[in-house]
Design a protein around this nucleic acid. Structure first.
Lengths: 106, 106
DNA sequence: ACAAATCGTAAGCGATGACTTACGGTAAGT
DNA sequence: ACTTACCGTAAGTCATCGCTTACGATTTGT
């Protein structure tokens, strides 16, 4: 999906700890909220943001709702950073080369 | 450095367009602000945030100041997402396996 | 059928953040 | 030396965001 929503979603520290809790696998809302310093509705709101950003999958399981990390969402961000990484390295190499050629001014 | 500051810095759309402008190489503040819908001081503030996050290098060049992307900062975020990507894939595979084994409930 | 559990949503509040204008400071040009 | 260009910082304003409490909906258990 669009990496822009994903990066905004991951900018919040509470949402990152939620994501970290889901690294081992899917969890219902109650288990996610357990131990967190915020209320359960707050967690629900965070889960909404993460889902809208394409970072989470939701599977209704009877009474509960299982949230799990969506690999595709993570991958969209990964690809953005990879392209940024490539360009940054290329620009850095070019700058170093210019520096070696004595192009300190211009 | 710490990927947390980096992800917060990249969450802002204006800061992302600034980063995009620097993909080709270092630029002074004036050139960066040119064409942007915000004032030059606003750009300066954004550059400060990006620098503090370890995403930019600053090289004073006489009158001007050249800002360029710091590959190390981008890499810190890349590593975080790679680890998240690995865990997400593993959890996904495990969930698919459990599903195949008929563990739909429990 | 009734009670309890699980969860999402609405409304309201306080804090953070992005922006503007105004100003000061340093380097380059004449 | 004086002016101009380039840039960072301070102060203040306005919108956005994360949080809480209160409530409603749906599902499970008795």
């Amino acid at each position: 999906m669009n990496y822009e929503d994903a990066i905004v979603a991951l900018a919040d520290p509470t949402r990152r700890t939620i994501i970290d809790k889901l690294r081992g696998g899917g969890l219902p809302v109650g288990a996610i909220a357990e131990g967190l310093p915020v209320s359960r509705p707050a967690v629900s709101q965070h889960l909404r943001v993460l889902s809208d950003a394409g970072l989470l999958h939701v599977t209704p399981k009877g009474n509960k709702r299982l949230y799990s990390i969506a690999p595709e969402g993570v991958d969209s961000l990964r690809r953005y950073l990879d392209s940024l990484w490539d360009d940054a390295l290329a620009a850095f190499a070019r700058a170093a080369e210019d520096q070696a050629k004595g192009k300190t001014d211009e």
